[in-house]
Simulated assay, not measured.
Amino acid sequence: MTVNIYTYSNYREYLKDFYSFKKQEKDGFTYARFSEAAKLGSPNYFKLIADGEKNLTSANIIKFTAALKLSDLESDYFEALVNFNQAKDFMEKEYYQKRLERIKGMTSGNFSSQKNLEEAEFESISNWTYHAVMILTNLADFRESPKWIAAKLYGLVTEDEAASILDRLMTLGLLKYDENGKVVQSFKQLKTNPELKKIGARLFYEGMFKRAIESFRLNKPDERELGAYMVGISEDQLPEIRRRVREFLAEINTLALENPKPERVYSFMFAGIPLSSNEEVKGDRPWH
């Protein structure tokens, strides 16, 4: 038994039920123990939030989701639920209500049809072209033809490579034939461990960024969206920034999956990379 967060419309009620469940499940679970796990200053902070005496801040939402041991999707739901309950005007409340509905939609129907790739599986299809071919099968005019696939991918793969990609995806069970004999995806979404650090992940992202560079040659400006900001941040801001990026990309993915008749395959990426080191510099000397 677990406490299903998706059944709640009030995060404080969820916290109360979570606490009751933990007390029954495990002896010794206390507010103080939760605060320690969440790295909160006050040992009674959980109770103050659950009882409505305090509101959760953005920084503490992150700490709560970690201590509650929520999945990425559950964390997104919890964050949206907190903001929905704490919203101060109708427009803000409506925005978060729609977000809650979208997230709940991802837990049922087509969105539950997903496969978590093991590291070995991911490494065997680490080239971006495998993933592009899988998405191509969703297009109305898709043809099980290496020549057609090669042309659709701007000739960046040969016909032999396209045939090999189809074979590999079929062998792995990631593509299949439907009742009409059409090649389709076996799963609506593929997911990997977000902490995947093996060589396959590196090759995948290297390939995607090389393909992004190719877009300057292959695509018109109005077919792509590129932008960059260089900003100064502190280390304690990074978890919140990363959470917002994941949330934004998940919303784009959800919006795209709602389209029953896709026409092209797109990749939306975000690159947040340190341009300066946080190592202490010793022995510096004046410019002049």
Rank of each mutant, 00 (worst) to 15 (best):
L139W: 05
D178A: 08
R33C: 02
L139C: 10
F122P: 05
E123I: 15
K39P: 02
D72N: 07
M170G: 11
S276D: 03
H131L: 10
A250I: 09
Y8V: 05
F46N: 01
A201D: 12
K115R: 11
K220P: 00
V184A: 04
F18E: 01
I252W: 04
E225C: 13
T2M: 06
L70W: 01
I135P: 01
L218E: 12
E94N: 14
F78G: 05
N85A: 06
K152V: 04
N55T: 11
P194Y: 00
R12P: 00
Y96L: 10
S276T: 15
A163M: 07
I135Y: 09
A250M: 00
G283V: 15
K210Y: 07
V231I: 10
A38M: 03
N180C: 04
E25C: 14
A66H: 11
W287G: 00
T7W: 03
E53P: 03
Q114I: 07
R202E: 03
D236H: 14
T171E: 13
R99I: 01
G41M: 03
N259I: 01
M134L: 14
S186P: 07
G28Q: 04
D17F: 08
S124N: 07
K210F: 13
R99H: 11
D51H: 05
V82E: 05
F64L: 05
P221A: 10
Y77V: 02
E159R: 15
K69W: 02
K210H: 14
A151G: 13
E225Q: 09
T30I: 03
S124V: 00
I125S: 04
N85T: 07
Y96D: 05
R243F: 15
G52E: 02
K47M: 07
M106D: 01
A50V: 00
Q189S: 13
F18T: 09
Y96S: 12
P43T: 03
V265I: 02
G207T: 00
S186Q: 08
E53G: 01
F111D: 09
F270M: 15
K261R: 08
E206V: 14
N10Y: 06
Y96R: 03
L275E: 09
H288T: 08
V231N: 12
Y8C: 14
E195Q: 15
L257A: 09
F111N: 11
F187G: 01
T137P: 06
L172D: 04
Y177W: 03
R33H: 13
G105R: 07
D160H: 08
V133K: 07
K282Y: 11
Y14H: 06
V157R: 13
I149S: 03
D167Q: 02
L190Q: 04
L172W: 00
L136C: 08
S112P: 06
D27P: 10
F270L: 15
F209R: 01
R246F: 04
N127Y: 11
G155E: 05
L48K: 03
D17V: 15
W128P: 02
I273V: 11
L169E: 11
T158D: 02
E13V: 14
R242N: 14
P194M: 00
E94T: 03
S124W: 05
Y96G: 12
A120S: 09
A38W: 01
P194R: 04
Y19F: 02
F21G: 01
F84N: 09
N110T: 10
V245S: 06
N83W: 11
W128H: 08
R99K: 07
T192G: 09
I62E: 03
L257P: 07
V3G: 00
S9N: 13
P43V: 07
N60V: 12
E25L: 13
I61Y: 01
